[in-house]
Design a protein around this nucleic acid. Sequence first.
DNA 1: ATTATTTATGAAAAAATTTAACAGAATTGT
DNA 2: ACAATTCTGTTAAATTTTTTCATAAATAAT
Lengths: 336, 336
Amino acid sequence: MKSKKGLSMKDIAKLSGVSVATVSRVLNNNGRFSEETRKKVMEVVEKFNYQTNLVARSLRTNRSQIIGVIVPDITNEFFAAIVLAIESYCFLKGYSVFICNTNEDEEKETAYFKDLIAKGIDGLIYISGKSDKISKETLLKDIPIIFIDRRPNISSNDIVYIASDNYKGGVLATEALIKRGCRNIMILKDIRNLSTVTQRYLGYRDTLMKYNINLGEEYIVNVKKVDFEEARKAVKESIKKGLTFDSIFACTDWLALGAIAALKEEKIAIPDRVKVIGFDNISISKYSHPAISTISQNPEKLGKTAAKVLLDLIEGKTNKTTNYILPVELVLRETT
Amino acid sequence: MKSKKGLSMKDIAKLSGVSVATVSRVLNNNGRFSEETRKKVMEVVEKFNYQTNLVARSLRTNRSQIIGVIVPDITNEFFAAIVLAIESYCFLKGYSVFICNTNEDEEKETAYFKDLIAKGIDGLIYISGKSDKISKETLLKDIPIIFIDRRPNISSNDIVYIASDNYKGGVLATEALIKRGCRNIMILKDIRNLSTVTQRYLGYRDTLMKYNINLGEEYIVNVKKVDFEEARKAVKESIKKGLTFDSIFACTDWLALGAIAALKEEKIAIPDRVKVIGFDNISISKYSHPAISTISQNPEKLGKTAAKVLLDLIEGKTNKTTNYILPVELVLRETT
DNA sequence: ATTATTTATGAAAAAATTTAACAGAATTGT
DNA sequence: ACAATTCTGTTAAATTTTTTCATAAATAAT
């Protein structure tokens, strides 16, 4: 490896016969300079294809034009779509993004957080994850932070939180099943108390109440992990136990896929004997057999909103710390 | 926003009663210092949770501990898995990664490339994309670059290129069909001359030759985009034209999905009348109906290898510029 | 013409760290 | 006691950019 670097402002200054300060003024269009010197400087800049050293600028201005995105799993289509939206918006505005995959590992989250701060990020987007432990230190650090998807349970009201209307999603899903004659609706959900799942559950519960449907605890089926296999096993077990149900509200499409596998194995007709509805509208849900009815979120909007709000905070265009709840949509396919 | 920054080495020096030089020596384990001073310094460092300002270090040392990853579409499961593997490995080694989504837009690639250089990345991983235009400037910049998946067609032999054995994949897929009695094998592929697809095609072509199968040009069906809809339409058209085929080798699973949709619409039984095999083993292929036989790549291995080789180059542990071709595997499911 | 004002530019400091050279002090070895 | 080794501080340079202050030059006002 040779030098890795090109010319510095000093070189440009020398080559165009002005001072470094003047070059800076011209380049940043900041302060006074004559048209003549502007031309002189720009000629040299273009001739040698000068590129600002952003590391030096960052040191001086304490602004890096970099943000961090902490995400549990970029392999998850939903998160990937959010990240893509963030990245696209940031690119337009001249920001780069660090991608930080945590796999929900708290230690990794903490380590990443420290490292990102040390590397001088201007802001952070926290997609889900644990986010309990870190957020206290986090909020002290004086860089803006946006939380997407799962709400961190910290007692501060000036956090920015962006998510889909999970509660409404729960309502829509449950109502869709009820309208098709279902009364014994199993809910299949993650056992962890994530705000997203909790909201979906509350939507389900309140809708049952609204329609005067009373179901025992056994209709709430918890799985330890959002995972095909887990769901398959859990549903099979419920069947073995003799639970009578005519439908399943799976809190994510992956759980729905597992549930469908179990039903198929038990030769239970979908949707004739049991209807299924998922959540997220991942691409598989359209191509699986039967195609899964689901609640679709808008990850692009989530990501773009987060990025926009974050950059506005960074650039001081706003200092509001409101929350954003984005609409969801019912998508009907073959499983209902 | 307040200060964003914590203590500097100067503060640590003052607080622990030593000089800045000594703090640096201790922190970097570089030069001489007594155990006693080490303790003194580290106590203060820990007490105040001092973090090295990596921007300043980067400016001075010209090393950022950052790499860039340029990828066409992070929403694509295959690329996401590669990126995840890269990120994981880099995290372990203390490197952060910029995620750059190009959507195959050449301008964006160029812009990103400049920006990454200006931000001082230590190395770059180029996943696919056009990479023709950029690579010439690129190679001059004296940071190591690794190419994954698609081979850039530049005439330089000291580039590092990592990919799956696409040729072998083409052979395996074609042989699998031939062994099941197929003789009229359609190949469904991207019209662009990407090295990956070309290799798969050559595997197909050579295998046909090996088995003395001669097929006309009409068995090569090109689509403009790797896309469900495009594939569906293309296959439908071939059917309308009266092409007799007993199998399809789709160069990606998404194309296979589209092909299957077309066959279903035309009520052609899979695999009885027509067999289908895809490429990539994306997660949908397992859950679609019928489940798709395919060639699986190992994106984790691709990513990890790329990251490892890149960091070794950056850290001067090697300067070999070899290519790596990783094995693929035949996965048989319902469509064959 | 002389002062006042504006405009353009340079010089120098500051940002946080690393590195190196040098020098003095303290410790150890002989 | 003298030499050698080890530790630490001081100082300075280097990285590049931005910013403040001061000054020189040009223009306007009286």
